[in-house]
């Protein structure tokens, strides 16, 4: 709680910057946060901006109807531990260097992936993730495996147990002035609609992050006291910077492949406009990639119905 209080003072005292640096630092300005939120709500309307209300503690650098983003009643049908096959003592988590070394950061976001790679088919944790395409492909395969597993489980009469495990989360994304990145808050409820305790909510945070980045705090944008678990944003900018670089590389590679295919086929009329496509991620799509990262922190909370990030 002391950490939380200090954090809120830091939030209050840190000056706002309006200079866009998201491609070089991974940080966004409040204006870019609004732009990214507008895009998220317009294209994927499970997310909404807050409605103006007397219960909200407004921050004057954001519009009153765009203080934070919210998605409600997101299902969470199992605990974080059940989403991964933990390899045991061989898994090593590095600490983070303060300057955000790329390898550290990739391990940070890739730790979940290492678990994912350890599939029953015999993959090993030593397999390195050097391509986000492969990473996503692996995640998709894992998803299918999970679906198969679930069907089998239900067939064996595990449905009642499943329902007892069912939880729901309200997720909030606010803007952190201290770190100049979005900050995620989760508020959980059990299947009866009763609020979860922070300890229970921690069960839905991936073990790798639980003690490092999850913080118990009250939702800062509500005047009423609503207890939540927040994902501490101290490393978000570094993670986002690495992901944004990866997005650019993947898109560049795909564009070149497409151009080569077109040269082989002869140029089609419809592809003329490909030339004006920038390989970098547009800032309004920042939150799409951010949600991918959050999925690795809260793997069992099924919030991300947007689209692939790269």
């Amino acid at each position: 709680m002391i950490r939380s209080t200090l954090s809120s003072w830091r939030e209050y005292l840190t000056p706002i910057t309006h200079k866009s640096t998201f491609l070089t630092t991974g940080q966004i300005t409040p204006e870019e946060f609004v732009q990214a939120g507008d895009y998220l709500c317009h294209m994927f309307p499970t997310w909404k901006w807050n409605e103006e209300s007397s219960d909200i503690s407004y921050r004057d650098f954001l519009p009153k109807n765009k203080q934070f983003l919210i998605i409600r009643k997101v299902p969470c049908d199992k605990r974080a531990e059940q989403c991964v096959e933990v390899e045991g003592p061989d898994v090593i988590m590095k600490g983070f260097a303060e300057d955000g070394d790329e390898d550290d950061v990739l391990e940070y976001i890739g730790s979940e992936t290492e678990h994912v790679q350890s599939t029953p088919a015999g993959g090993t944790k030593d397999s390195s993730i050097d391509d986000i395409d492969e990473l996503i492909q692996d995640m998709e395969i894992k998803e299918e495996d999970e679906n198969d597993d679930t069907e089998e489980f239900n067939a064996k009469g595990g449905l009642a147990k499943d329902m007892a495990q069912e939880r729901y989360y309200d997720l909030y994304i606010a803007y952190s002035t201290s770190y100049r990145v979005p900050k995620m808050y989760i508020v959980g409820f059990n299947s009866n609609g009763s609020p979860l305790s922070p300890e229970q909510m921690f069960e839905d945070i991936s073990a790798d992050y639980r003690t490092k980045t999850a913080t118990i705090e009250k939702l800062p944008f509500y005047k009423n006291s609503v207890l939540s678990v927040s994902i501490h944003p101290c490393k978000h900018a570094n993670v986002m910077k690495i992901l944004l670089d990866k997005v650019r590389v993947v898109r560049q590679r795909r564009r070149k492949e497409l151009q080569e295919e077109q040269e082989l086929d002869g140029v089609g009329d419809w592809e003329d406009l490909q030339d004006d496509i920038d390989d970098s991620l547009r800032v309004d799509q920042y939150l799409i990639v951010f949600l991918k990262f959050i999925t690795s922190v809260t793997p069992s909370i099924q919030h991300d119905y947007t689209m692939e990030g790269w």
Binding site: Y39, H42, F44, R282, D284, M307, E308
Partner: peptide, 14 residues
């Protein structure tokens, strides 16, 4: 095989 192309339109483009 994916709806990414349309979902990637900006709000203004949409």
């Amino acid at each position: 095989g994916s709806s990414k192309a349309i979902m990637s339109l900006s709000v203004n483009e949409a």
